[in-house]
């Protein structure tokens, strides 16, 4: 039996609300002429939003048992969908088209959040792998499986969005741009790990091996990035960061939090499923001697 350690949902919610507040609520209010920033500078706001968002998500992820009914995960998914819809509506219909790229630039409002959160999920998987190797606790194995799977999904979507964006701007579906290539390599590397998990029947070996493979693959990703960048340095074309006005970053951030919430909820649900599987595979707790005798 999985021992459910109930943990309060409140700190996670507070952190995420704080993040959402400084992430986009302040800017949204500002758009309608309200100032709710409490005098905190925009740079600090962004920092608070990012840190509180990540810490809040991690709080939910490491306590993926907030009640057996997984209310928290469902709440997060619903919250995420709301944020994502709001952000997308804002990004698609309210924000003006960009000067050079026109309407196509609106893909950014979904593309960049996917990239951030995909990387976050994979990073969380890497952390799970390290913790599992030290603590050998099944919870971390389940979280590893969940976050890698969600991370691969997001990275795969990232590749597709990248290709869709590349067609009108660069004229080709695929460019050997370091980011695109690295993401593709990342998808394949972690897909391999998911395949490994399917092929290994012994749960302990599966857990240890996928942890080892995750660590190696994660270390590989930056090396791939730099080598492809080097390889490409002659025809390198990277979008230079421009001063983004609030009209552009508002939908971006809303969507970022939307995808973050959805991702966190998904990982929580998925790790619950993974744990169920391990529980099925491992022997039930030792039967008492008497029962053993009866079974004979």
């Amino acid at each position: 039996m999985i021992v459910m350690r109930e943990r309060s949902i409140v700190p996670g919610i507070v952190l995420l609300l704080l993040a959402a507040w400084f992430g986009f609520a302040v800017a949204l209010a500002n758009h309608y002429g309200l100032d709710v920033s409490f005098g905190i500078s925009t740079g600090l706001q962004a920092a608070i939003a990012a840190i509180a968002g990540i810490v809040g998500a991690v709080y939910f992820l490491v306590s993926d048992n907030l009640g057996p009914s997984l209310k928290a995960a469902r709440l997060l998914v619903v919250l995420g969908i709301a944020c994502f819809l709001l952000g997308s509506w804002y990004g698609l219909f309210v924000a003006p088209p960009e000067k050079f790229m026109g309407q196509v630039q609106r893909i950014m409002y979904v593309h960049v959040p996917t990239a951030w959160n995909g990387l976050l999920a994979i990073t969380f998987g890497f952390v799970c792998a390290c913790v599992f190797l030290f603590k050998s606790d099944w919870k971390w194995d389940a979280r590893l499986e969940a976050s890698i799977e969600v991370g691969v999904l997001l990275s795969f979507l990232l590749c597709c969005q990248g290709a869709i964006w590349a067609k009108p701007t660069w004229g080709v579906w695929w460019d050997w741009d370091p980011r695109l290539t690295t993401t593709a390599v990342l998808v394949f590397a972690f897909l391999g790990i998911l395949a490994l998990r399917r092929f290994v029947e012994d749960p302990l070996r599966r857990a240890v091996w996928s942890s080892v493979a995750t660590i190696i693959a994660y270390v590989d990703v930056p090396i791939v990035y730099f080598s492809v960048k080097w390889w490409n340095s002659l025809h390198q074309q990277q979008s230079s960061p421009q001063t983004v006005s609030s009209q552009f970053y508002l939908p971006l951030r809303m969507n970022a939090f939307g995808v973050l919430f959805i991702m966190t909820g998904f990982i929580m649900l998925r790790s619950r499923i993974a744990r169920e599987r391990v529980e099925q595979e491992l022997a039930p707790p030792l039967p008492r001697a008497v029962e053993m005798q009866e079974a004979v």
């Binding site: 000067k99 050079f100 790229m101 026109g102 196509v104 893909i107 979904v110 964006w165 701007t169 074309q237």
Partner: peptide, 24 residues
């Protein structure tokens, strides 16, 4: 980067959004 302004392209935007939303 192309120098000219990319015109149109709503179909690409819709494709990207619906792909993401659908898969998720």
């Amino acid at each position: 980067m192309n120098t000219g302004v990319v015109t149109g392209g709503w179909s690409y935007v819709w494709a990207a959004y619906s792909l993401t939303a659908g898969a998720l």
